[in-house]
Design a protein around this nucleic acid. Structure first.
Lengths: 335, 335
DNA sequence: TTGTAAGCGTTATCAC
DNA sequence: GTGATAACGCTTACAA
């Protein structure tokens, strides 16, 4: 069943059928109705591939995330998909994992499918060495590229992010102002946002006259038991700490587990802060003090900006929002 | 840059270029090399839309989930996408939410894009009233449909699931054998797997001579505070319970929060079990006793079955695996 | 307002 | 082995 069949049954030309399908201006009400009747009656569905070929677009956006099992990324995927759908775009999802090569493969895949735009979820995609980001720049020559929670200076690349440096500064500030003297920073990787968070942490420490060296910056393997172990090891090497500022909620939960294992009371003996305000922060006991970086808002904003790019508007290359602190029971109460 | 440009530069016909691209049999080594050189040199990428039109397929599978922010669904999405990608298929993701109408819209969308198959993640898609599932049956007339953790008897519909009834029976059995006398069942919705879990719970109770009526079957709103509240209300109505068998980990965490709020010791005064063995079960303190329903395995299996369907093989309409229990600290220790 | 016909860039079927 | 050429099913000038 194709457009010719419909045109025959309705006694019109294929052009008219096409016009009806795309409800283009000039079709008489009578003709339109006749065509619509036939379409309904035959259950006709236009062929998406042929349509794409003509229009050179499938109204599809490529979504790249490293791992949607990460609660935070999953939320982003969900919100982005919803917003895109509201604008009649479908989402092609790619879960790249962490390896650069794999990311590049996926990018190539999406471009070969001629997606209309790309959204990178999370700062995992921005490598420290700028040369390694060239693949993103290349992609941006073909389609607009959006980066959530990461930033890259390049034509046709737009960043939407939370001011992680500021939020990290504030939350470090919070535990310091409530008595912490030897905080450590727990991170998964020094991705773009990881580095920003680290900056905030260091700045806050400096402002409080607290000396921080690399022994206070703890890379964690990522999962909860591993994080717990990393902190145990840290303690065994003789580093004393009374606060853990974690780069995400899962790491913070690892710190909670560590405290429980070592019988340290939270927050009296150990203050802990997370990041993301994910469901994990609520699962933890006590609930985490964490940063809400407004992921839903960021996703809505990103898609809305994307649509503007499609419309040919000029856009700022970076849009930055502020997160806010949600106080749970892992930091000492304020006055 | 299209296949004609390449053919000119290489001094061959477009047919030959096409043959090289699809590394089809008969092309002389010399010609092939010449064409490949031109392709490399020009950075030529075949047009995906034109290709799809010819082949009538984009090698794309539609993935439908209600909400990937649900950790369990997110994992499934991730594994499915990975496996599909390994078989050279891309994934079109749809997050439908819970409303039937929205699910149908999404289904229609995917079909209009001519995906090669559909995978429904989670049993949310199988309605209790069979008539409401007709939209899935309709879809199955066009493309093969896979259902993860749900089941529907229909041509071209294949179910891959964990034996939830059995697992739920076992885990209920576990808390009963360890002293629980008045368990309640906590669920989110009576979806296909929800109903199976309920059956397992009831059967185990019956076998232990424990009377269960509907007051012991607690629908929870879903989120943690809401679940906590639901249990408080239950207690206020005078229902005594010493075990909570929850249909998923998040609900179980709600029960943990309830116990903590009411100062009930876990597992002495209240045993709690979850379901899914998600990261939430590890975040909780104590860690949950829960069911691992082998989501990764199920996803791998589903995709492998899907590929067999594409190859035209006959397949059983249902493939069922057994889950297993992971003991945490929310159930009393065995002897 | 409607119809004709020329793309869009492939794949696939024939001949040669 | 290779090359014409006809699909594939739509959109869209341009004509009428």
């Amino acid at each position: 069943m194709n457009i010719y069949d419909i045109s025959k049954k309705a006694g019109v030309s294929i052009a008219t059928v096409s016009r009806v399908l795309n409800d283009s201006a000039k079709v008489s009400a009578a003709t339109r109705q006749r065509v619509l009747d036939v379409i309904k009656e035959t259950n006709y569905m236009p062929n998406a591939f042929a349509r794409s070929l003509g229009l050179n677009s499938m109204y599809t956006v490529g979504l790249l995330c490293s791992d949607p099992s990460d609660v935070y990324q999953a939320q982003a995927v969900c919100y982005l998909e919803r917003e895109l759908r509201n604008h009649s775009y479908t989402s092609m999802l790619c879960c790249t994992g962490g390896r650069l090569e794999e990311k590049q493969n996926y990018l190539h895949l999406l471009l070969s499918r001629s997606v209309d735009a790309l959204v990178f979820i999370g700062s995992h995609f921005i490598e420290q060495s700028d040369a390694q980001n060239s693949y993103i720049r290349e992609a941006a020559k073909k389609v607009p590229v959006f980066i959530l929670n990461g930033s890259l200076e390049a034509p046709n690349v737009y960043s939407v992010l939370c001011d992680d440096r500021k939020a990290s500064f504030s939350i470090t500030e919070l535990v310091l102002s409530r008595g912490a003297r030897s905080p450590v920073f727990l991170y998964r990787a020094l991705s773009y946002s990881g580095r920003r968070k680290l900056c905030g942490f260091q700045d806050a420490c400096q402002e409080h006259g607290i000396f921080v060296d690399e022994r206070h910056l703890i890379p964690a393997p990522g999962d909860i038991p591993g994080t717990c172990l990393a902190l145990e090891n840290l303690r065994d090497t003789g580093i004393i700490f009374d606060a853990v500022v974690a780069a995400d909620d899962e790491l913070a939960v690892g710190a909670v587990k560590y405290a429980q294992k070592k019988n340290l009371s939270i927050p009296e003996q150990l203050q802990i802060t997370g990041y993301n305000h994910s469901v994990l922060s609520l699962c933890s006991t006590p609930e985490l003090t964490t940063v809400d970086n407004r992921i839903e808002y960021m996703c809505t904003a990103a898609v809305s900006l994307l649509m503007q790019v499609f419309e040919g508007k000029e856009l700022p290359s970076m849009t930055m929002y502020s997160g806010f602190i949600v106080e749970g029971g892992t930091s000492r109460p304020g006055k």
